[in-house]
Computed example of a mutant assay.
Amino acid sequence: MDVVAAVGMFRDGRDDGGLSISAGSVGFWIVVALILVLVVLYRSMRKQIRRIDFDEDATTDQERMGRAKRNTEGG
């Protein structure tokens, strides 16, 4: 019952009881921070994907993997 009472304290501000909670500037800055993190992750992912080297002329997956394996072995 304590949990129900605690959740009941957080109201939308239209009532006299409880705390008034709104997204406000804190919510805005959290969203901005999340967007910045996503942009950084996206750019990093693009950079890593560009480094992948595979044989476009190969007809099977085995041939493509063979070239990638030779490149990582130093040959």
Rank of each mutant, 00 (worst) to 15 (best):
M1S: 14
D2Y: 02
V3E: 08
V4Q: 10
A5L: 11
A6D: 06
A6K: 08
V7H: 06
G8I: 02
G8H: 02
G8Q: 02
F10Q: 00
F10N: 04
R11N: 09
R11W: 07
R11Q: 11
D12E: 01
R14W: 10
R14F: 11
R14H: 11
R14K: 13
D15P: 02
D16I: 13
D16Y: 08
L19Y: 15
L19P: 07
L19I: 13
S20Y: 11
I21N: 05
I21F: 08
S22V: 08
A23R: 12
S25W: 00
V26M: 05
V26R: 04
F28I: 06
W29A: 00
I30E: 10
V31D: 00
V31N: 01
V31Y: 03
V31F: 01
V31M: 03
V31W: 01
V32A: 07
A33N: 05
L34F: 05
L34V: 04
I35A: 11
I35V: 12
V37K: 10
V37D: 12
V39A: 12
V39I: 13
V39N: 06
V39G: 10
V40N: 07
V40A: 14
Y42I: 07
R43F: 07
R43L: 15
R43M: 12
S44Y: 12
S44P: 00
S44N: 08
M45N: 13
R46M: 15
K47C: 05
K47E: 07
Q48F: 15
Q48N: 10
I49P: 00
I49V: 08
R50H: 07
R51D: 00
R51E: 09
I52N: 05
I52P: 04
I52Y: 14
D53R: 15
F54C: 09
F54I: 14
D55F: 11
E56M: 02
D57Y: 14
T59W: 09
T59V: 10
T60H: 01
T60I: 01
D61A: 13
E63T: 10
R64S: 02
R64F: 02
M65H: 01
G66M: 02
G66K: 00
G66Y: 04
G66R: 01
R67A: 08
R67Q: 11
A68I: 13
N71K: 15
N71F: 15
T72V: 14
E73F: 06
G74F: 11
G75H: 15
G75R: 14
G75S: 11
